[in-house]
Design a protein around this nucleic acid. Structure first.
Length: 283
DNA sequence: ATGGTGACCTGGAGGC
DNA sequence: TGCCTCCAGGTCACCA
């Protein structure tokens, strides 16, 4: 599942292989892939023709291709989205949703997405940071040079909910998904359902530092795994699997204390944690 | 305003 | 073999 590190790998690939190129023609093969573009496929394709890609940028799990005139193609990979750079004429992928051809006749960009949770949209860039308008409300991610850890801790503690819910709330801190939330909580020795009002400053700081650390390690592990034709990760948690300490490891021993990792239902999905290292209880 | 729930979507896994 | 159910989970519409 693409969380921040995976999306950053994709962004770097797009920067290397797409930035500086002029779009010739865009083809939408599945309307759901651009459902967040309110004006529809015709508007989307018409306005992109002739546009130049200035850069590939990212905040949290969102990435965007910056165009001239303060516009951008905003992308979210959802659960299964991929950005592929393929030679023109290469066989279409089964779940190819959008094709972008370039004026230079070089490799084309393909948005492939089996489960169609992801999508593309054309958006205006707004504010000092030139963020796409639809995501102007999300928080900075921990990789952002301007990320303010103290402010992020305050934001987490201002909520009245379970710690993991707060970690997954992209308006507080962006980029953290289910996998890295569980990993960060394990590293910080905090239980996923700890009430945020009982979270101390030190604990808040610890879990954010852990999240930053684990995502940086994952990024490092993934930074070598794409080449010119495949600007992506594999859609699973992929190359970083081996380094996960709790996620998906139900009944296997905790790497710290040997206790069996437990899985609990959480928001129609799962939370994995060590019942010994990560106590629910009091501070 | 805030917090919590279910829908969206497809394919792989596992039960019978 | 084949049918069925469950599961994965990021985001958003919707509800209280």
């Amino acid at each position: 599942m693409p969380e921040l590190p995976e999306v950053e790998v994709v962004r770097a690939g797009l920067q290397a292989h797409v930035a500086g190129r002029v779009i010739a023609r865009v083809e939408v093969l599945h309307p759901r892939a651009i459902r967040r573009h309110a004006l529809g496929p015709e508007d989307f394709t018409a306005r992109l023709a002739g546009a130049r890609v200035e850069a590939a940028r990212r905040r949290g799990k969102y990435l965007w291709l910056e165009l001239s005139d303060k516009e951008a193609v905003l992308a979210h990979l959802g659960m299964s989205g991929q950005m592929l750079v393929q030679p023109e004429g290469a066989p279409d992928e089964k779940h190819l949703r959008v094709r972008v051809r370039f004026a230079d006749g070089g490799p084309e960009l393909r948005f492939v997405d089996q489960r169609t949770f992801g999508g593309l949209a054309l958006a205006d860039l707004t504010g000092e940071d030139l963020l796409p308008a639809p995501i102007a409300h999300i928080g900075r991610d921990p990789m952002d040079p301007a990320f303010d850890p103290a402010a992020a801790v305050r934001a987490l503690r201002s909520r009245r909910t379970e710690l993991k819910r707060a970690l997954l709330d992209q308006t507080l801190v962006s980029g953290v998904g289910n996998i890295y939330a569980d990993e960060a909580l394990w590293r910080a020795k905090l239980h996923w359902s700890r009430p945020t009002e009982k979270l101390t400053n030190a604990q808040g700081r610890a879990v954010l530092e852990a999240a930053t650390e684990v995502m940086a390690e994952a990024l490092k592990a993934g930074g070598t795994s794409f080449d010119a034709l495949y600007v992506n990760v594999n859609g699973q948690s992929g190359y970083f699997d081996r380094s996960l300490n709790v996620y998906g490891r139900q009944d296997r021993p905790c790497g710290r204390c040997g206790t069996a990792i437990r899985r609990e239902p959480f928001m129609n999905r799962s939370s994995y944690f060590c019942p010994r290292c990560q106590r629910r209880g009091r501070t």
